[in-house]
Design a protein around this nucleic acid. Structure first.
Lengths: 225, 225, 225, 225
DNA sequence: AATGAATGAGCATTCATTCAT
DNA sequence: AATGAATGAATGCTCATTCAT
């Protein structure tokens, strides 16, 4: 891997593990066993590194949220989207510990972040619309975007929420699934009576996933069954 | 006002306006035109100032969330609680820009914060239970606490969310009402058919309130009518 | 006791226990539950307090080192002097942790200290002379002052020496007697053959004293026997 | 010279001249016309600088106190040791102005210091034993270590003693020779009658050295004659 | 590409001392 | 005599960034 990419990935790793505020450019250089000067050869400044990490974030989100023109809307598809979102959140969780602060510092990053988020929201709303048309959701058209937004919000702040409001502050994959179940709960509240069962099955699936985090050797096919 | 209180309020103001990480003790002293030594005469250190602000936060929350022994549960009462929460969040919004970081630094504050939040959650759950018994909410008993928790979560992170995900990042009272409406939306999703109308009226009330922010001279009695 | 004296004695106590450098004027005031302003009403500054402690030190030394015109020189008398010195050292031990530093800061105190020390040295030399005349010490007249000086030096720096060169750094009365025995060792090296026995008895006495520190209830008459 | 070494030597110089407590890291940086940041690039903190100075001290002492396997014990050899000790003390005299304080602050340095001192003491005792076997010293075997210890003590605190107890507080090489003569005095007190002459000659030698300090151009062969 | 020494403004904090009351 | 709030220069130290090599 090129030095530039090494710096991005080391920074991301260290930021996630110990918080962006606690990681200096010298920490990153020392971790990679390169000189601080070399780090600044590849990046103008620390903000520039963060900006590059956001670029990575954006492409993760974009590639995981591909629209699905023409395909039939399935719950699996929708869940695929949420899987993507939660995985992205895990990968870039340092951002969500400190989102306001980071975005306030760099106007350009803020704009790009908002654009990416807006696109993700549009796609989510589009899917919710289809689910409504298909009789899965009992919801008025004008409530669709607010609902998508609420779900996104819970996803975005779940990590920060867990870290501050739960006794055990360490974030794990299991605690992320807990967040997913919370989103599903809201989803289910808007489900038509006929689709309640489907949502129940989804819940059971993710509950199993959360449990699996502690039993990693089990092969999981809970949804398929 | 006593110097000690001046320091607390100036800190709160500056933290809210420019972020806690960007405000040094010297900034606070300079803003108040007192010496850094004087600031440290009144507070052991910066953490101590923050701790005192949290004390203020806790008493705001506690006094606004008085239990209502004996009274009849009304939507108005519940809404009063949310009004309190949203106003408190506004007053102490700097915390939510950086909650993980702040709470990680001071174990004692973390414990107190979590205790306060737990009590607020208990009271919310209690009210939801009553609403369920009164046939207002169609929700299983075991879903009550998760629902209360979700609503709290949206309340807690609404400001941070707005600040980072909306184009116009400036937080106003109107944008807080927007958050309130979002919570109501979730609420309404669990309403029994008979109480749908009540929730609709509530929505209209808060919508009016939000609009009034731009027309402050109008006397508002939207709920009464 | 008057506030002024309370300040002197509290300062002495705190300096001895925790080191002069580690005790601020605010510490002293807080310990006495008086205001810093009051402390500065009684003393111009910290140096002034230290100067007053030195005054106390000087009078201790002077009163314990009264010349003994006319009396017969006895070993008991001499030992009385060393008892005084060691007790004074114990009482004012903070000085000897940091003597250079303290005396460098205040010219006037330095001069007074040196004067007091010179007088103590003169008296010691005078006694040694008599002991020589009485056939107790086998020493040339011109070696008398250097010998007195060496003994004083060991006395003065014993505490500092113990604190830095022994594994167990805590200073106790017992460790002071250890220093006394060291001085006696030098003394004995200059004893005439006839007086060796007397010095041996002295050593046994102080050895017993050192042991007594751990058995405080025993009545000690080791010298008398 | 490398910056790191410059910092060590400048610190040593400034500490010796003005006392360690009175020299801040900023003083050192200013003296060397480097930035405080640069100083902290080379040293973790002030303790780290002091620790490095102690390393220097230890190697000075170790290299000057090489054991002398097989050689015949001569007074010259012994005196060589004391020369080393006194010169080392001169070079690092700031330590002895404040030894308790400095060693109390850093456990690791204390341990190393005590180890170095213990080794020096062992070697001194070993030499004294040989001198006793050779009929130079009239001393019981069990008194050897206390004697070595006493001599070391005088050496260690001579500078501090002179600085505080003599009218002319400025330390010179001549005043160091005075300390050496003091140690010799104790030594001589334990000499056998046959070796008294040798010690007298030694005294004369060092007396001459002390005088030479004021006549630096004279070639000194006082011992040889 | 890379090194690593160097910068310097800034930070949280301390403490002897002052002063209005 | 005494209070206690206030001062302000100073301290040890940090860290994003620069630059000669």
């Amino acid at each position: 891997m090129k030095t530039r990419d090494k710096i991005i990935h080391a920074s991301l790793k260290l930021f996630n593990e110990r918080g962006e505020r606690n990681i200096t450019t010298n920490h990153i250089a020392a971790y990679l066993k390169i000189s601080p000067g070399n780090l600044y050869y590849h990046f103008r400044n620390k903000e520039d590194i963060i900006s590059s990490i956001f670029l990575l974030y954006e492409s993760h989100l974009d590639s995981g949220f591909q629209p699905y023109m023409g395909q039939e809307v399935s719950l699996e598809l929708l869940v695929g989207y949420f899987d993507t979102m939660f995985e992205t959140l895990w990968e870039f969780r340092f951002m969500y510990d400190n989102l306001t602060d980071i975005l306030t510092r760099d106007e350009a990053v803020l704009k790009r972040y908002q654009h990416t988020q807006q696109q993700a929201l549009n796609r989510s709303s589009h899917i919710l619309s289809k689910l409504r048309e298909d009789g899965v959701l009992a919801i008025e058209q004008e409530q669709i975007t607010p609902l998508a937004d609420t779900m996104r919000m819970i996803a975005c702040f779940w990590i920060g929420y867990k870290q501050t409001h739960s006794i055990n502050a360490t974030i794990t994959k299991a605690s992320l699934y807990e967040g997913l179940l919370r989103v599903l709960m809201i989803f289910k509240a808007h489900a038509t009576p006929e689709s309640q069962g489907t949502f129940t099955r989804l819940e059971q699936h993710y509950q199993a996933m959360a449990n699996t985090c502690f039993m990693p050797n089990l092969d999981v096919h809970s949804l398929a069954s």
